[in-house]
Design a protein around this nucleic acid. Structure first.
Lengths: 214, 214
DNA sequence: GTCTATATCGCGATAGAC
DNA sequence: GTCTATCGCGATATAGAC
């Protein structure tokens, strides 16, 4: 998407949009949530704060779009896998981007406010996550790969909550291994197949490092 | 503590301190995190913002002390119980104070910043929680009330993370039953005795409502 | 469409008078 | 212990130049 050779009056604008999203993340990763003011981001890009707001009219909107872009990127990662395995691969990847996880979590809390712009985004996100987990578990059940007596919805709620809680804990102590903890929880629920699937995918990614050279 | 009949030059100051903590929570519950500025809290109390800062020199300090006071109050609640049961009772109670839980969670995220004043507080809190959970599980193990093969530390990490994640989810959708979800997780880990202990304590509290009249 | 300049507001924090 | 005044900063809105 947004090819390098794009022409027309909107090309520059779109490039700038992406540059802004990238800069936001950079500033955020380096200076933390409170440091990532619109002015600081504008400074990083050597543009005026007002121009920034020409592209993203509010700070909330900007932050939301950064998170949403990360979300889309995640969706594209390791597409062939089972959802739970796919999720695990993403959690492993999250381990390398504390700034983004911090942004995500901070936004999730802020969006708790009844009239926050990102509220519907999070509710949609939780719903999507839930239905994908449920579908996955039910598929595993039908093949006899996991016990019949587990409640897919309940497990989904628990997994989502655990994931967010583990992230918070990991942000507090970077040595905390949130990936391993999540794997452990999946094993507790006897959802071992996706774990093995993810481990194979991750091992393969190590052998053939495509984005590793950057 | 802090008796009504206390005398001396510090009495008024201490009363004011408590009034400030209470007002902070009120404003926070009503106007959310971003609405709870020092000015708004001062307005609520009909004092000047500067006076507020005479008692709590920074905003961070003030918020931290509100959370810390809630923590102490929790410690005093249902003291006779096993720690896990005690925790459950507190989670049930949390169900009625969304404003405080929101403050707690928001602060937990902010404290993720390496040089935030509340960082050591949270690390200490996590450590205390962990050791109490571990002690509890080990005691249960020694009496044969829970399976030998579970790793207490690992379960502690998972329970803490789950609790915080469930809170976030509950803040997003108030119908979400974080207490029941947590109970379910404890059952998954075959930690049923504390669940029953808590249910009995909660039922008794319903029969004899002591603080309910306020 | 792209961009700058400017103005207003509310914030946390400090200094100093009473 | 309490106030007023003020500082510097960030968020946001608007007017208008290119």
């Amino acid at each position: 998407m947004t090819a390098k050779y794009e022409r027309g009056p909107y090309a520059k604008g779109r490039e700038r949009r992406e540059a802004i999203l990238k800069a936001t993340l950079d500033v955020f990763s380096e200076s933390g949530y409170r440091g990532a003011s619109l002015r600081a981001i504008a400074r990083e890009l050597d543009i005026s704060p007002a121009l920034l707001q020409h592209y993203f009219s509010t700070r909330e909107e900007l932050l939301m779009e950064v998170v949403s872009a990360w979300d889309d990127e995640n969706d594209r990662r390791s597409e062939g896998l089972t959802f739970l395995a796919h999720w695990l691969v993403n959690i492993k990847h999250n381990t390398e981007i504390p700034g983004l996880i911090r942004l995500y979590t901070a936004l999730a809390i802020e969006a708790t406010d009844p009239d926050h712009a990102a509220r519907p985004y999070f509710n949609r996100r939780y719903d999507n996550l839930t239905s994908q987990i449920v579908r996955d578990i039910e598929r595993q059940k039908s093949v006899g790969l996991c016990p019949e007596d587990i409640d897919p919805k309940r497990v989904a709620r628990l997994l989502i909550a655990a994931c967010e809680g583990l992230q918070i804990r990991w942000l507090h102590s970077p040595d905390f291994d949130m990936y391993e903890e999540f794997v452990g929880l999946l094993r507790d629920f006897q959802l071992t197949p996706p774990v093995e699937e993810a481990e194979i995918a991750l091992a393969r990614a190590l052998e053939i490092p495509d984005g590793e050279g950057a």
